[in-house]
Design a binder for these strands. Structure first.
Lengths: 207, 207, 207, 207
DNA sequence: ACTCACGGGACAGCCCGTTCTT
DNA sequence: AAGAACGGGCTGTCCCGTGAGT
């Protein structure tokens, strides 16, 4: 609804721009910045060089937009349906399960981690974007944990930042392992361990 | 000692070859396979193209050797001193602490994870090497957990594979976060959580 | 006239493409496929690498086009004015004389023979092209001989294929000798012998 | 006999030199000068670079020696048994037949023609060698024709040079065609035509 | 007499980005 | 707004030849 609203407001050029981004995103996500060529994007979009460079003034700008797009999709996929869940702990558990069940945001794995590793040397633009994205994600989990503590669901001695970071680290690490082994098992293992960890920080029921 | 013994037995060519590998390893680890150029290796080693290609018949072969070298270093760094520790649980805790304290095996982060992400598309040679390395690491932790269970240190209902995989995933994920934030905190958080997890699988003391 | 008509219909790119072919043809004809470099073509055309590779996706493709171009020129040169000649025998004699008089289709000798020898090992693309060209040439002479027999100009016991092949072989062989000696004499000798051979297959005049 | 005599007189170094030449000859004959690499020769001989350059001061020198060797073989093959034939005309016919029957002096076709075409541009050393070889061959045939005229076997109005050159040109041209078509037919055709040509210069028997 | 090690240079192909044209 | 044409640069690989060492 919102999307079609935006679409309706777009001129033709802006629409093409969005199409390019959407079609470039999986390429950059799979091959990385250096490994992707404008030729790849040309083939994917059917446009010529001139057509691409009208919308983006450099490969880097396109990559940044593609990353932003991939990010948005990742966030949406991973938080979809979260509002229907009641309680901080169930929400955290839901996030973990959802990550494990629907890991394929885009072909090529998690854009966050990919960019984090890929842009580790050089490319400060992408690096900064990845940082912000991680910080946001971390902040959201952090807030959830805090809410859980405030609500008495989570033990008071729980460190919210520590828990949030651990969940993210374990999930992303598990995703890498799963992609490499071409098997869901590593992610399943991480899921089980994280749910166990959630149990261990659950506040004892007060009577 | 053993090393210098080997070194003494090397002819000049083999020595140069080893030097190239040692000097190429950080390059490939930082920039990845596609992002590294033979020119980079030339500058790092002081050799010319002809000199390099005498020792390696392709860039891929050099990258594979460099990765093997990096791997060996990683394993050594992370398992150094492990023999002096008694008991499976202390050993696991030691491995976790050591990973967090000495994360910088080589400039550019963990070669395992880097290669896993970098060689995710294409490059089956490196991909296979990374897989084997992860499998080995996992196997080692797996064995430790099993020993702990057999020795009564770890609860019988613990899933060895699940625990091993989780430790690896969380540590590697934490390392990525730490590198990106340029701070030790993420790794420290993961460390704390993993030690907590170890506590929760510790078998209750029998009286 | 026809040419300028075609030219007028060409876009700029196609025109450049044709210019490249025309300027690359003598290079490939002189140095062979392996002996010619894209650098040579760059210098001859004034274009840069990027400019060249826009029109041809590989050196081989360019070489093939250049060979086709050279071939066309060779055929035109060698059959020019043939239509004004009456009778099969005079036509054959005309072809032989024309070959000897105007041997320099392109710098570097006959593209047919050059390619046949050059692409003898490897390069199946060029090899195939040369084969087809020879087959066509042979076929044309073959047909002429057959017409001569049918018309009673040439003796009935003449083997058309044998005569056609011999003419081609002797002319091409003579051309090689002439180029090497840097003298027209070898070709002149072949010409005389071939005309003698034509005499010996001329049907006796019926009374 | 002569060979073994030479061999017996050779030191080890000279023997190696001869072995290199013999093993390099087919390579240069097949791939040409520019198309052959010292690496190819290394593999064929089992020697290293340094070993080769001890015996030849450059690739060109080796190629020249290899060509000389190939030449000698060609001449021997094509004139073998010639002494047992009586009469100039039978000798010429024998040469033609022998060329057609045993065209494969070395893998890669006739070294003479190959070098003539290959070294057509540049490489004056090989070019000169090829010229000399052709001149010698031509001279031999020339002498045979002259003897035939003197002996009354061949018509007095025959031009010896013209006939000699034609034979060579047609045979070499036919060889190229045969190699290309991968069939003996072209050579067979040339053979038949040349024998026909010999008939037409045969002096009428005096009664 | 021969191997090992290395330098220096070339070559084909690709890629990013700009400009001209439509 | 998009396509066509082109420039300049870089990369992996190969190749010839030299010199130290054995």
């Amino acid at each position: 609804m919102l999307v079609s609203g935006l679409r309706r407001a777009m001129k033709k050029g802006e629409l093409t721009r969005q199409r390019i981004i959407a079609e470039a995103a999986p390429i950059f996500n799979q091959k990385g910045f250096g490994g992707s060529s404008m030729q790849d994007v040309m083939e994917a979009t059917g446009l010529e060089k001139g057509g691409l460079y009208r919308h983006f003034k450099s490969k880097e700008e396109l990559a940044a937009e593609a990353f932003r797009y991939a990010l948005q999709r990742a966030i949406r996929t991973r938080t979809d349906g979260l509002d229907h869940i009641q309680g901080a702990l169930p929400k955290l558990a839901y996030i973990i399960r959802r990550f494990v069940e629907a890991p394929a945001v885009l072909p090529g794995g998690c854009p966050l981690l990919n960019t984090a590793v890929d842009a580790d040397d050089g490319n400060p633009v992408l690096r900064k974007l990845a940082r912000q994205a991680f910080a946001e994600w971390n902040g959201r989990l952090f807030a959830l944990v805090e809410q859980g503590i405030a609500a008495g669901e989570i033990r008071r001695d729980t460190n919210p930042g520590q828990l949030a970071t651990t969940i993210i680290a374990a999930l992303e690490g598990g995703l890498v392992l799963s992609r490499m082994e071409n098997s869901r098992e590593p992610l399943k293992s991480v899921e089980a361990s994280l749910l166990l960890l959630l149990d261990s920080v659950t506040a004892p029921v007060r009577s």
